[in-house]
Amino acid sequence: SKDAAQYVYDEAQKGVTQVTVNGVTFKFDNWQKLLKYAQKLLN
């Protein structure tokens, strides 16, 4: 959902490398990768 994507995006902006959405945890090597993933979700 857009809300989940926005949440992931906001978390990535904080510099975190993992985020949990609806009980599913996504882990990334660095926050830039998390940010890229979030941007994909938002598009």
Rank of each mutant, 00 (worst) to 15 (best):
Q6R: 08
T17W: 14
A38R: 01
K2S: 08
D10E: 11
G23H: 07
A5R: 03
G15Q: 08
Q13E: 09
V19G: 07
N22S: 12
N22V: 15
Q39L: 10
N22L: 13
Q39D: 01
K2D: 12
S1N: 11
K33G: 02
L35Q: 01
T20I: 06
A4S: 06
K27F: 15
K33Y: 07
Q32M: 05
V24Y: 11
Y37M: 09
Y9R: 05
Q32K: 07
A12G: 05
T20S: 10
T25V: 10
Y37W: 08
V8W: 13
L41N: 00
Q18H: 08
V8Q: 12
D3L: 07
Y7A: 14
K33N: 05
K36Q: 06
D10L: 13
K36T: 04
K40G: 02
T20M: 07
K33F: 09
L35K: 01
K14E: 10
L35F: 07
V8M: 05
G15C: 15
D29S: 14
D10V: 13
K36C: 12
A5Y: 06
L42G: 00
K14T: 12
K2W: 14
Q39I: 06
T17P: 06
F28S: 02
N30P: 05
K36A: 11
K27Q: 10
V24R: 06
Y37I: 07
Y7G: 14
A4R: 04
W31Y: 04
V24T: 03
T20W: 14
Y37F: 12
K36I: 07
A4V: 03
V8F: 09
G15M: 11
Q6F: 04
T20A: 08
V16E: 04
K27S: 14
T17S: 02
V8H: 03
F26H: 03
Y7P: 15
D3Q: 07
L41I: 05
V19D: 02
A4M: 04
L41S: 00
Q13M: 10
N43L: 08
N22F: 15
Q39F: 12
F26M: 07
S1T: 10
V24Q: 07
Q18F: 13
Y7K: 08
G15H: 10
W31I: 07
K14A: 11
A4W: 12
D10T: 11
V24K: 04
A4C: 15
K40R: 06
D29Y: 14
V21T: 11
V24D: 01
V24E: 02
F28V: 08
L34I: 02
K2V: 14
W31H: 01
L42S: 01
L34N: 00
A5P: 15
V19N: 01
Q6C: 15
A4D: 14
K40Y: 06
F26N: 02
T20G: 05
A4K: 09
L35I: 03
Y7T: 14
G15T: 14
K33T: 07
A12Q: 05
K36H: 04
D3H: 06
V16A: 07
L35R: 02
G23I: 15
K27V: 15
T17R: 03
S1F: 12
V24N: 09
Q18L: 13
Q39W: 14
Q6T: 03
G23P: 01
Y37P: 00
L35W: 05
V21N: 05
D29G: 13
V8G: 09
E11M: 10
E11K: 12
Q39M: 13
Q32R: 07
Y9I: 11
F28C: 14
S1Q: 08
S1A: 09
A4N: 10
F26L: 08
S1P: 13
Q18Y: 09
W31Q: 00
Y9A: 12
L35C: 14
K40H: 05
Y9C: 15
V8D: 14
L35M: 02
V19Y: 02
K27A: 15
V19E: 01
Y7S: 14
A38I: 13
A4H: 07
V16W: 12
Q18N: 06
K33E: 06
A12F: 12
V16I: 05
W31A: 00
D10H: 05
W31C: 01
Y37S: 01
L35P: 00
S1G: 11
Q32H: 11
Q13R: 08
E11P: 11
L34R: 00
L42T: 01
V8E: 13
K40Q: 04
A12T: 08
G15W: 14
K14H: 10
T25G: 04
A12W: 08
K14N: 11
L42Y: 02
A5E: 08
N22P: 11
E11G: 06
G23M: 10
F28L: 13
T25S: 09
W31F: 05
V8Y: 12
K2Q: 11
F26W: 08
K14Q: 08
D3I: 13
F28H: 02
A38G: 01
Y9D: 14
D29A: 12
N43A: 07
K27Y: 13
N22T: 13
A4F: 09
N43F: 10
A5G: 06
N30K: 06
G15N: 10
D29R: 12
L42E: 00
Y9T: 13
T25F: 14
T25H: 08
A5Q: 06
Q39H: 02
K33V: 06
V24F: 11
T20L: 14
L41P: 00
A4Y: 10
Q6N: 02
V21R: 01
T17I: 12
Q18S: 05
E11Y: 10
N30G: 09
V19T: 03
Y37T: 03
W31R: 00
T20D: 03
Q18K: 08
K40T: 04
V19W: 14
V19R: 04
D10F: 13
L41K: 01
N43C: 15
Q39R: 09
D29M: 13
A38Y: 04
G23R: 10
N22Q: 09
Y37Q: 03
L41T: 00
G15P: 04
K14C: 15
F26D: 02
N22H: 12
V21E: 11
N43T: 03
N43V: 03
Y37D: 01
F28W: 09
Q13C: 15
N43G: 03
V21W: 03
S1R: 04
